Amino acid sequence: MTLVVNDRRRRVEVDPATPLLWVLRETLGLTGTKFGCGEGLCGACTVHLDGEAVNSCTISVGDVGRRRVSTIEGTGGRVAGAVRESWLALDAAECGYCQPGQMMAATALLTAKPRPSDEDIDGALRGNLCRCGIYDRIRAAVHQAAESLER
Rank of each mutant, 00 (worst) to 15 (best):
T58G: 00
D15Y: 02
E94F: 05
D120E: 10
G65A: 12
T2S: 09
T27S: 14
V47A: 02
V69G: 09
T58K: 00
T58D: 03
G96Q: 03
G43I: 10
N6L: 05
A141R: 07
R115V: 14
G36E: 08
A92I: 04
N55H: 14
T75K: 13
C130R: 09
T75D: 06
D120H: 11
N55W: 00
V47Q: 03
G40T: 06
R68H: 15
I121H: 05
R66N: 14
G65E: 13
A82N: 06
P114C: 09
L110W: 08
R78H: 13
G38L: 07
G74M: 07
E73D: 11
L125K: 07
V23T: 14
A140D: 15
G40K: 09
A145H: 06
A146P: 10
L20E: 10
A141S: 15
E147L: 14
L88N: 09
E150Y: 00
L110T: 10
C57Q: 04
V5M: 02
E94D: 03
R9W: 04
R126T: 11
G62K: 05
P116L: 08
A92K: 03
L90H: 13
T33Y: 12
D118A: 11
K34R: 15
R131K: 05
G51S: 06
N128Y: 00
I121Y: 12
A140M: 04
C132L: 10
D120N: 10
A106T: 10
E73C: 04
P100M: 07
G65I: 11
G76Q: 13
L41W: 06
L20K: 07
H48M: 04
M103P: 03
R131N: 02
A93P: 00
L21V: 13
G123V: 02
R10H: 08
V54G: 02
G43A: 10
D7C: 00
L24S: 11
E150G: 15
D91P: 01
M104W: 00
R66V: 14
I134Y: 10
S86H: 08
L24D: 07
E13A: 15
C37Y: 03
M104P: 01
L49Y: 09
Y135C: 02
V47I: 13
R131A: 04
R25A: 12
R8P: 01
N6C: 06
E119M: 07
R139K: 15
R11M: 01
E150V: 12
A17K: 14
D7P: 01
R11W: 02
D50H: 06
C45M: 04
L20D: 09
R115S: 15
R68Y: 05
V23R: 07
R10W: 01
M1C: 01
C57A: 01
I138N: 07
H48T: 03
L21W: 08
A44W: 06
L20I: 12
R137L: 15
G81I: 09
M104E: 02
G62P: 08
Q99V: 13
